[in-house]
């Protein structure tokens, strides 16, 4: 069985996107590998999933999000499976919105990444602080979780242009 040129390109593209997500996971979760700003880390998997979902649409976006979330769950101190559920949803929703009501451009990517970042950090903060009634919850949200969204959004264009270039090269 010989693969057609388009199929080969699709396999190549999916391989590159999966590799990019794994690389983002390694950079994000290995202590000391990716710089933190004043103790605030970037959550690289969020823009990686959103941008991939935007270019690959809903169903592939769902599976890229699932891959990213399951890998993140290996390191996560949050509720079991939370990252898989959240990132799968981000990948699916990004793809579905671009396929129906939004245009695919940098501003949209910014909006979707910021929304996903706020949603992720708010849910995580809710489970980590609010549900357990720990003190300093609001301070943690304002000085750690929201700045982390900002840092993540600032890094988003890097993923957007990588995904765009790969998509353009591989159809």
């Amino acid at each position: 069985m010989r693969l057609g040129a388009q199929t080969k390109k699709a396999f190549l593209r999916r391989g590159i996107f999966s590799g990019m997500i794994l690389l983002a996971a390694v950079l994000q979760n290995t202590p000391g590998l990716f710089p933190e700003i004043f103790g605030v880390p970037a959550m690289l998997l969020i823009p990686a999933v959103v941008c991939t979902g935007m270019y690959e649409r809903d169903i592939p976006g769902l599976f890229y999000g699932l891959l990213a979330g399951v890998v993140w769950d290996i390191y996560s101190a949050g509720p079991p499976g939370l990252n898989a559920v959240m990132l799968m949803t981000f990948g699916f929703v990004s793809g579905a919105l671009i396929g129906t009501v939004m245009r695919n451009n940098l501003v949209t990517a910014l909006l979707l990444t910021a929304s996903a970042g706020v949603a992720y950090n708010t849910v995580y903060w809710f489970f980590a602080f609010v549900l357990k009634s720990y003190d300093g919850a609001m301070q943690a949200y304002l000085t750690f979780y929201l700045p982390s969204v900002l840092y993540t959004v600032l890094l988003m264009p890097m993923f957007y242009f990588i995904v765009k270039a790969v998509k353009n090269k591989t159809g």
Binding site: P41, M43, Y75, A77, G78, Y124, S148
Partner: peptide, 15 residues
Amino acid sequence: PVIGRDPADLFFALT
């Protein structure tokens, strides 16, 4: 070996 840390966790949980 310490192989990972969740960036979203503020309580220094390690993998």
